[in-house]
Each structure stands twice: as C-alpha cells, then as structure tokens.
C-alpha cells in the first residue's frame, strides 16, 4: 500500500462525516432558503416551490426578526466587552507574583466554563428569583429594592448577560493568562529600572503585548455570543415582551415550532453573514493596528 493510498484511507472516514453531515447541509441550507419548504413539503415534496429571495425579503419585513436582531446585538455589544474585561482582570490577578494558591484560584475561576449551560441556567433562574433569590437578597443589604430580573423587559437581557459572563469568562481568562506568561520578564525589569509605575507598565507593555491574544478572544467571543440560544430558552423562553428572543431562538421557533424550514434556513444564513461581517471587521481593525 502506497503512502498516498494510506493517506486517503486515513482521511476518508473523517472527510465523509464532515462533508456529508456538515458541508453538504450548509450548501443545502442555502438552497432550502430559496424555497417555501414547510409542513406540507415535509409531508410531500411535490408541494415544494422555488421562491428566490422571497424568504429573505419576507424576514426583513418581519418585526420580530428586527427585535431579535436588536436583542442579539445588545447581548453582543454589552456582553463581549464585559466578558473580556473580566477575563483580563482575572488573568492579570492570576499572573501577579503576589497571588497565592494560583492552582486553586485558576480552577475555581474556570469551573463555570465546563458546567452544563442548561443546568447552570436553571441555578441562575433561581438566584435571580424576585422574591427568594440570593441576588436580590444581597442587593437588599445595600438598600436596593428587589428587581424583577427575568420578568421586567428592561432587566431580562442584563440578567442574561450577567449569567453569560459568569459562565464564559474563564475560557478567555486561560488564553489571556497563557499570553501573559509568554511576555518576556526583562521588559518589566527594564521598565521598573526606568521607574515606570504599575499602570504605566500595563499600558505600555502588557496591553500591547497582549494584542494578538485579545484579538483572538474578541473574535471567538463575538462569534460565540451571536449564537445565543440556550440561555433564553431555559431562563425566559424569549419573554418578557420578547425582550430575550435571540436570532437563533427566532430561527428555532420558525423551523422547529412552525416548521417553516425555508424561512428558518434564510434566518440561519443571515446570521452567518452577520457574524462573518462583524468578525472580518474586527480582524481588519486588529491587523491595521499591528501595521501602525
């Protein structure tokens, strides 16, 4: 058996799975988004009609789509910077020479990342309970009146953002910590000799050196946060007043509650284009900074 034939035999199983159950479905999703595939087509394919970009036009005229888009953007625009700020702060603390028991702190801070999102969303629903929740109880000590976190459309998204930051920040913390540990120590040595303060070292050494890692975690987090789904599914079911319907939640309902699979495919594609657009802009901004 030649090396070339062996290579293809080693590759074949994985390529068949990825091709057949991912790449082909992605192409099929685009084709599907140009049809009116629904419950009738599901029963009999003869009912299927080609509608061109009709689904896309239709969706762009659906108020709930725009609502879900605004909700998702709110989640991304507030949630991503907050997540990264917490990740960076905890990574800096863990990297500090003054920190004790680093192994314990690192594990404890990372633990929420490996938990099951549905299970911890259930916990948070209870923590956020208006009457019996620990969060309102704690806020009460500071004289803050109980907040109806998951029942008030002004507070539902902030509540989901708090939960998401708690659940996810550890992931980026580990990546940033690894990058911090890769910064040569003599840079700080030289800065200290020059009398640079802690904040000056942070601004002129740490943050510039972290730039590639920060760009990486931004791209990962942005594309992850656009895919918001399980949190509202468990915590609010999209309510109150549809204030937590995300684009994916909208897609799920269109597809698997109303069986408008053509429309749902179009929503999935719109989300894909949006994520691709935003992450490429991020990468461009990040790289332009490198050249400067």
């Amino acid at each position: 058996m030649t090396e070339r034939r062996a290579a293809w035999l080693f590759l074949a199983p994985a390529l068949i799975v990825i091709g057949g159950f991912f790449l082909v479905p992605v192409l099929a999703a685009f084709a599907l988004s140009l049809t009116d595939f629904d419950l009738y087509a599901l029963a009999d394919l003869h009912n299927l009609r080609f509608v061109g970009f009709g689904n896309y036009v239709d969706i762009l005229h659906t108020p709930l789509f725009w609502k879900s888009l605004v909700n998702t953007l709110y989640f991304v625009i507030v949630g991503v910077p907050l997540s990264i700020a917490v990740s960076l702060a905890t990574a800096l603390l863990l990297d500090s020479k003054l920190a004790r028991c680093k192994g314990f702190f690192r594990t404890a801070l990372f633990a929420p990342v490996v938990t099951t999102v549905v299970a911890v969303a259930v916990i948070w629903r209870y923590l956020l309970h208006t009457r019996y929740g620990m969060i309102n109880y704690t806020l009460g000590h500071f004289g803050i009146a109980p907040i109806d976190w998951l029942g008030d459309p002004h507070w539902s998204m902030p509540a989901i953002i708090l939960f998401a930051v708690w659940k996810n920040f550890g992931y980026n913390m580990i990546i940033l910590l690894a990058a911090l540990q890769g910064i040569p120590g003599d840079l700080y040595e030289a800065a200290r000799i020059d009398g640079a303060s802690w904040s000056q070292q942070l601004r002129h050494i740490t943050l510039p050196m972290l730039r590639p890692a920060l760009l990486l975690v931004s791209v990962i987090t942005v594309s992850g946060y656009f895919q918001l789904f399980a949190e509202p599914y468990v915590m609010t079911q999209g309510d109150p007043l549809q204030s937590t319907v995300s684009v994916l939640y909208f897609m799920y309902n269109e597809g698997f509650k109303w069986w408008s699979l053509g429309r749902a495919s179009a929503i999935a594609f719109l989300l894909f284009v949006l994520i691709l657009g935003v992450t490429s802009v991020l990468l461009r901004i990040g790289r332009r900074g490198d050249a400067a």
């Binding site: 159950f21 991912f22 992605v26 099929a28 999703a29 597809g255 699979l261 495919s265 999935a268 994520i275």
Partner: peptide, 8 residues
Amino acid sequence: PGQVAMIP
C-alpha cells in the same frame, strides 16, 4: 456556525 447546517 454549526446552526447553519442544522435544518438540512
């Protein structure tokens, strides 16, 4: 994103 493939 994986969800693009989910419906087909």
